[in-house]
């Protein structure tokens, strides 16, 4: 199960619709062991494509440096599908390398605009998981103490 802040869901959808028809992408960072990731970083899609995304390598370098400094880990990798539903494509599965991350997909396509789904991708298999959306001021401190 993915536990995610409501503000992050809103930010992902807003970014996806703003960048439509190009695929939008980004990540949410958290502290290791924490259940809810806390820092969302929208990334530049270096592919600038309607059917492909790749984190801009220069920006990725900077984000990974910050992440190391702050002892954060990527907990969510997200991207949009602008012409299809929020299901992982063959390429999404092929390129997924982090078995500990949640892979979040959103759709801005006609049919299901705003659809959001989360997956674990391990050994070339994607398994969908439920998404629990929480409101920061009420739930987040409890989540963190529960660790």
């Amino acid at each position: 199960m993915l536990t995610i802040l409501d503000t992050h869901v809103e930010a992902i959808l807003e970014q996806a619709f703003a960048e439509h028809p190009v695929e939008a992408c980004g990540l949410i960072l958290g502290k290791k062991g924490q259940r809810t990731p806390h820092r969302l970083v929208p990334m530049e899609n270096a592919a600038r494509s309607e059917t492909f995304f790749q984190f801009d390598p220069k920006q990725q370098f900077k984000v990974w440096e910050e992440m190391d400094d702050q002892e954060e880990v990527p907990m969510v990798f997200y991207h949009s599908h602008t012409g299809s539903r929020a299901f992982p494509s063959k390429e999404d599965i092929h390129h997924a390398w982090d078995p500990e991350a949640h892979y979040v997909l959103v759709s801005t396509a006609e049919g299901r605009p705003g659809e959001i789904r989360s997956y674990r991708i391990i050994n070339d298999k994607a398994i969908e998981e439920t998404i629990r959306v929480i409101h920061q001021s009420n739930d987040a401190p409890g989540e963190n103490h529960a660790g």
Binding site: L27, F52, F55, K58, W64, S89, D92
Partner: peptide, 27 residues
Amino acid sequence: DIRFKDQLATTVQQSDTITILPAVAGG
């Protein structure tokens, strides 16, 4: 990023740090 330098021929000096990162990509 060595793609914007001399690729595999990019020179390194003793004080340099080389970082390897897998791309985050998909379709």
